[in-house]
């Protein structure tokens, strides 16, 4: 499902990336292709190797095998020129509890050789403003809530204009309002041309802000592509609302669709009508409008007709398995 884009257009590219800790393979032959300008959702259950992959991408850990290119530079050998262009949030925010929020940002910014000390104070103020933390800038981080620390972590990633943001679980610990703000922030950054690589174990979050998705399961990248491609890989469902069940089933069977009677949907407007659910159109060879035409010409009264794409959730679960078992 990988898009056939030329390598130059990729912000992150890995080739057979693997990481072993002793006998345990945590990342197993991952071939990531993150197009520039995309918002790439890196999805997977807890323990599926997402954070380790991010550590490898950022040169914090060394790969057991495979190659990594970030923003066109080989990692980790070109780390010094690549990383100043990357805004990081790795495995949650981390700060000095005895320093204020602003002092923390100044401290971390000073570690970047390319960050100008002249503009530091202004950039810190701006980043704090952007995540809504200006009022708490002088407060010690010890007194911050989890959500405030998360915001400060995002502010840190935004201290300088970046070509790529790597955000590991950015909405962790945020309330619904904060989650919305982060989504808005990611969208506005992406609109400005920044590539955003965002990891999450929350499907809904990825579905709402990403253009591309990669799904990790037990250290392997089991699917990758645009959100649309991933959705299309699952089977769409047609839902029909009609009082003429028997006639409808005959028509649908003739079209090669399987159908089953579903319980009345909550909010159904017609008391006498019943719903019929079919799976398909199988193999995309029957267009929805053709189904409706066939139904109507055979005298089936169509009161409602919906084409429902397979939910990404079903696809996700089918790829990664269900339940609370933590992989590995």
């Amino acid at each position: 499902m990988t898009e056939g884009s030329p390598p130059a257009d990729l912000a992150i590219e890995t080739d057979g990336l693997s990481k072993r800790f002793g006998h345990r393979t945590v990342v197993d032959g991952v071939d990531l292709a993150v197009p520039r300008g995309s918002v790439f959702g890196f999805l997977g259950p807890n323990g599926s190797g997402k954070t380790t992959t991010i550590r490898l991408l950022l040169g914090l850990a060394s790969a057991s095998s495979g190659h990594i290119r970030v923003l066109g530079g080989e990692m980790p050998s070109q780390l010094a020129t690549v990383l100043p262009r990357v805004g990081p949030l790795v495995e949650g925010p981390a700060f000095y509890p005895f320093l204020s929020g602003a002092a923390n940002l100044r401290r971390l910014d000073s570690a970047d050789l390319h960050a100008s000390p002249r503009t530091r104070a202004a950039r810190v103020d701006e980043a704090l403003e952007r995540v809504g933390l200006s009022h708490a800038a002088a407060k010690k981080v010890r007194a911050y809530s989890l959500g405030m620390k998360q915001r400060l972590g995002i502010a840190h990633a935004l201290l300088r204009p970046r070509e790529l943001l790597v955000l590991d679980e950015p909405t962790n610990g945020l309330d619904p309002q904060g989650t919305r703000e982060v989504r808005g922030l990611v969208r506005s950054l992406a609109a400005g041309g920044t590539t955003v690589f965002v990891s999450s174990h929350l499907l809904a979050e990825v579905e709402q802000m990403c253009t591309h998705v990669g799904v990790m399961s037990v250290g392997k990248l089991v699917a990758q592509g645009t959100l649309h491609e991933l959705r299309a890989a699952g089977k769409a469902t047609v839902r029909l609302h009609t009082p003429d069940i028997e006639a409808a089933v005959r028509v649908l069977t003739r079209l090669g669709l399987q159908s089953e009677l579903s319980p009345p949907q909550p909010g159904s407007y017609a008391s006498d009508g019943r719903s019929l659910v079919t799976t398909g159109p199988a193999g995309h060879d029957v267009a929805p409008e053709a189904i409706v035409a066939a139904l109507v010409s055979n005298g089936v009264r169509v009161r409602g007709f919906w084409v429902e794409n397979a939910s990404l959730e079903e696809r996700f679960v089918s790829l990664t398995g269900e339940g609370f078992d933590i992989a590995g």
Binding site: L60, L79, A80, V90, A94, L108, A111, A115
Partner: peptide, 14 residues
């Protein structure tokens, strides 16, 4: 222990 090491290194501090 604070976790700030990873942020210093990806800054990159070298």
């Amino acid at each position: 222990n604070l976790g700030t090491l990873r942020y210093l290194l990806v800054a990159p501090a070298g």
